[in-house]
């Protein structure tokens, strides 16, 4: 069974992605600070389905110095790594002029530095086996503005630049690197939008609804499928036509 790491895989979007990949037959190692009841329930569903597996490995991804040892420990426990989904991130919002500097630094650390460092050490293992897939979870706000999300948007745009250049770097080694840019998906991160904000997003979407976690999971699953072997360096937008 091929191994895929999904960061932030214990709840919300990350758990949806992890469960979908596990259901498709991969062994998914979800990394998060702590295991959740919803994760346990998903792991049971995967087990009952009888194809893949959903495992948990506790780690604080903000501790960047610990990332090399984290990757080594995961390889030792589960074996060679085929894939990585960089999903973990903070959704901190707020007007730039009023944002706390420490909160900004934490946002940059967890949303940019941490996934780049993790990718470095995971791709080193892929390089020696000549093959692998990486999916970075960006956002439509990387390319379309949204009030009070400037720093978050900057982090998500950074992941797109990272994706495109790394795709060129790792292509000769049969490693694909892509990004998925969800629109506003109904998760804990968007629960702060309020009813008016929710309605506005739905009104502006071509399909008059919000994308769902399952839609993002499907896009990521496609990028891990055989059908996506010639797709690298691209961004798949999943937003129910919000930016159409």
């Amino acid at each position: 069974m091929r191994n895929i790491i999904v960061t932030g895989g214990s709840r919300g979007l990350g758990l949806g992605i992890a469960e979908r990949l596990a259901t498709d037959g991969f062994q998914v190692i979800a990394i998060a600070r702590s295991q959740t009841e919803v994760f346990d329930a998903a792991a049971q569903r995967v087990k009952a389905a009888g194809r893949g597996a959903l495992q948990f490995h506790a780690a604080d991804l903000a501790d960047i110095e610990a990332i090399p040892a984290l990757v080594k420990a995961i390889r030792k426990e589960f074996g060679a790594l085929y894939g990585l989904v960089n999903n973990a991130g903070l959704g901190t919002g707020g007007l730039l002029s009023g944002m706390n500097d420490a909160a900004m630094a934490q946002l940059l650390r967890l949303n940019i530095h941490s996934p780049i460092a993790l990718t470095k050490y995971v791709t080193r293992t892929m390089m020696t086996q000549k093959g692998g897939r990486i999916v970075n979870i960006s956002s439509i706000v990387a390319s379309n503005g949204f009030n009070a999300l400037s720093v978050y948007s900057a982090t998500k745009a950074a992941l797109v630049g990272f994706t495109k250049s790394l795709a060129r770097e790792l292509g000769p080694l049969e490693i694909t690197v892509n990004a998925v840019a969800p629109g506003f998906v109904d998760t804990e991160l968007t629960s702060g939008l309020g009813e008016a904000g929710y309605d506005k997003i739905v009104r502006r979407s071509a399909l008059r609804r919000m994308a769902e976690v399952e839609d993002v999971g499907s896009a990521v699953a496609f990028l891990f499928s055989d059908g996506a072997r010639n797709i690298t360096g691209t961004v798949v937008t999943v937003d129910a036509g919000n930016t159409a």
């Binding site: 080193r124 293992t125 390089m127 020696t128 770097e169 000769p172 080694l173």
Partner: peptide, 11 residues
């Protein structure tokens, strides 16, 4: 790129 692979494999 091969040198990068070399460093990774020596690790």
């Amino acid at each position: 790129l091969c040198v990068a692979v070399l460093v990774a494999s020596l690790d």
